[in-house]
Amino acid sequence: MPKKSLGDQVGEQYEKVKDGLQDVGRRLTEEDDSPAVGLIPQPQRPTLTAQRLVGTHPQDEERSKQDLYAEAQRLGVKGRSKMTKSELIRALDKTRG
Results as ranks from 00 to 15, higher is better:
27 R>D: 04
33 D>I: 14
64 S>H: 01
74 R>P: 07
1 M>S: 06
73 Q>W: 14
42 Q>C: 10
28 L>K: 08
5 S>V: 07
17 V>C: 04
85 K>Q: 08
33 D>A: 14
72 A>V: 01
69 Y>T: 13
37 V>S: 14
15 E>K: 11
85 K>H: 05
1 M>A: 07
90 R>F: 08
66 Q>N: 06
58 P>M: 12
42 Q>P: 03
68 L>W: 00
27 R>A: 08
44 Q>S: 15
87 E>Q: 15
73 Q>T: 02
45 R>D: 01
1 M>P: 03
65 K>C: 07
86 S>H: 03
89 I>D: 00
82 K>G: 08
55 G>H: 01
72 A>M: 06
21 L>G: 01
49 T>P: 03
74 R>Q: 12
41 P>K: 08
31 E>K: 15
85 K>R: 04
19 D>V: 13
35 P>H: 10
81 S>A: 15
22 Q>N: 13
6 L>N: 09
62 E>M: 13
6 L>R: 12
34 S>Y: 10
74 R>F: 06
91 A>K: 00
70 A>R: 12
54 V>P: 00
76 G>E: 07
16 K>H: 14
75 L>E: 03
49 T>D: 13
37 V>R: 11
77 V>T: 01
2 P>Y: 04
87 E>H: 11
61 E>V: 05
31 E>M: 13
43 P>Y: 07
18 K>H: 09
15 E>L: 11
81 S>Q: 13
24 V>W: 05
45 R>H: 12
87 E>V: 00
38 G>E: 06
70 A>I: 14
1 M>C: 02
18 K>T: 02
81 S>L: 10
13 Q>R: 12
1 M>H: 07
32 D>Q: 13
